[in-house]
Design a protein around this nucleic acid. Structure first.
Ligand SMILES: NC(=O)c1ccc[n+]([C@@H]2O[C@H](COP(=O)([O-])OP(=O)(O)OC[C@H]3O[C@@H](n4cnc5c(N)ncnc54)[C@H](O)[C@@H]3O)[C@@H](O)[C@H]2O)c1
Ligand SMILES: NC(=O)c1ccc[n+]([C@@H]2O[C@H](COP(=O)([O-])OP(=O)(O)OC[C@H]3O[C@@H](n4cnc5c(N)ncnc54)[C@H](O)[C@@H]3O)[C@@H](O)[C@H]2O)c1
Lengths: 229, 229
DNA sequence: TAACGCTTGTGAGCGTAATCACAAACCGAA
DNA sequence: TTCGGTTTGTGATTACGCTCACAAGCGTTA
């Protein structure tokens, strides 16, 4: 019954507002916040904050601002964080272990409830308070635990195969850490976290500014030479 | 001297094409590729591939496609990957360790050359073939090694402080893993990798489709009841 | 109640990105 | 050389997102 659908760009920012609001509520004991203040905390434009929040409804008070607790509740509800989301990690290597032991997920409704691998020397081991199970048990465990999110932390070559198995097991949301493109049916959402891509983007922009600096330098030299000659 | 600047969205996709091309060249021994094929491998639209590549120049041959090696070289050059980018990690906990030991970075010009922490019990320890140094040595080490990329893997409360120190040391590119907004001067680029945000976005879309399914179900029941009553 | 300062909510304008659709260009065959 | 099949490169169009700017609405004060 919503007036307008929430744009993708807005969905991506709601978690940032959520974090800023939690900080305001818990650490600073603020009960009220203006779009200006929230914008500063989230590192975005104030008009953008207001427009983003307006998609959720008219929850602010003109001349006053937003009630922190109420806004927290509304964003939490909108993001579906009032319920618990059991997640499973596949691939318990370096990264999978760090993720499995990470305490930060549980803070907001995400719980890692099962971890999988195919390496016999890893299976049965305890990581982050859980026993590593064989990938063959995936479907069964997912059904039993109502797992809704699958996290892929295998080498890239295994990523598509693992994604297929997650889909087959009924998982509709996948977070992929492997540097590989994975294809899934349209009713499944995949998001990727790719460090190499991020580094390469940083490289591009840094190289560009370096190139500009070098060109300026060359220009300066040329001018000086010309002046002197 | 480029005809047009490369759009941000394109820069974000060049690394994906790069990976697909490397796969074609190394694993499959292909010397030529069409925009259709490349689009399939990268999981995007073919017209988008052609437009993206056209920002680099006219490197394709009509009726034939693109020469894999040549395209590889051009993208590599454009992304600034012909040179090495020494990187430093700050915060050697769970995640920092996984990153420091990760072999995947070096494959493309990124080398972790120094790792830092402030915890005395961690400093001096060897991780990924490097000795953990105290953050106080940052400026000195960055100058010495020509570090160009800083990676933040500390708790969120320390992130801004660490970013400030990286900036002060002359680092112009930062990759931030801490769930916190960090502010830097305009000549510094920050990119963030935030797992919680990704999970929350997945939660949003999954919750939405569940809500739709529930609404359909309720509707169906209502109709049935109506029909029966 | 009226006047004032403050902040929201949103229409309008602008810029960026995605997609479409097709002329131009190339290759190989005849 | 011509023709047909193929694929690029790009103008045109549409969709999306960001920012501006301001009327509308609220609380406070007198
Ligand atoms: N470690 C990092 O810091 C880091 C950084 C960026 C990206 N990544 C990516 O994350 C992924 C995991 O990295 P890692 O360093 O943990 O690698 P890793 O080699 O340490 O661990 C991979 C694990 O996946 C398991 N595995 C292999 N095939 C499997 C399959 N078909 N099903 C289930 N499990 C399987 C292996 O047994 C192993 O335990 C890789 O794709 C890597 O490129 C890692
Ligand atoms: N572990 C994960 O899988 C994971 C997942 C998502 C996000 N993160 C985020 O990544 C960051 C690191 O996570 P972690 O699990 O490795 O945490 P951790 O607590 O294991 O490690 C943090 C490290 O940072 C060091 N540190 C603290 N303050 C510092 C400072 N001012 N300067 C330098 N070093 C400092 C600590 O001594 C510690 O070694 C956190 O912000 C966390 O939220 C981690």
């Amino acid at each position: 019954m919503r007036r307008r659908p929430i744009p993708e760009a807005t969905v991506g920012r709601l978690p940032i507002y959520l974090r800023a609001l939690l900080d305001l509520a818990e650490s600073r004991g603020e009960t009220n916040v203006s779009s200006d203040e929230l914008a500063r905390l989230a590192g975005v434009n104030a008009a953008k904050v207001r427009k983003d929040l307006s998609y959720l409804g008219s929850y602010g008070t003109r001349g006053v601002g937003y009630d922190v607790e109420y806004l927290l509740y509304q964003i939490t509800r909108e993001l579906g964080l009032t319920q618990d989301w059991p997640a499973a990690i596949v691939g318990i290597g370096n990264l999978g272990r760090a993720l499995a032991s990470y305490k930060g997920f549980s803070e907001r409704g995400f719980r890692i409830t099962a971890i999988f691998d195919v390496d016999e020397s890893v299976i049965g081991e305890e990581v982050g308070g859980m026993i590593v199970r064989h990938l063959d048990e995936l479907k069964e465990v997912v059904a039993e635990m109502g797992t809704s999110i699958g996290i892929i932390a295998t080498p890239p070559l295994a990523a598509q195969e693992v994604a297929d198995k997650l889909v087959d097991a009924g998982v509709k949301s996948i977070l992929n850490f492997a540097p590989a493109v994975v294809n899934v049916p349209p009713d499944v959402t995949v998001r990727k976290v790719d460090l190499s891509i991020e580094l390469q983007i940083l490289s591009f922009y840094q190289q560009r500014t370096q190139a500009i600096a070098t060109a300026r330098e060359a220009n300066r030299r040329l001018r000086n030479q010309h002046g002197a000659g």
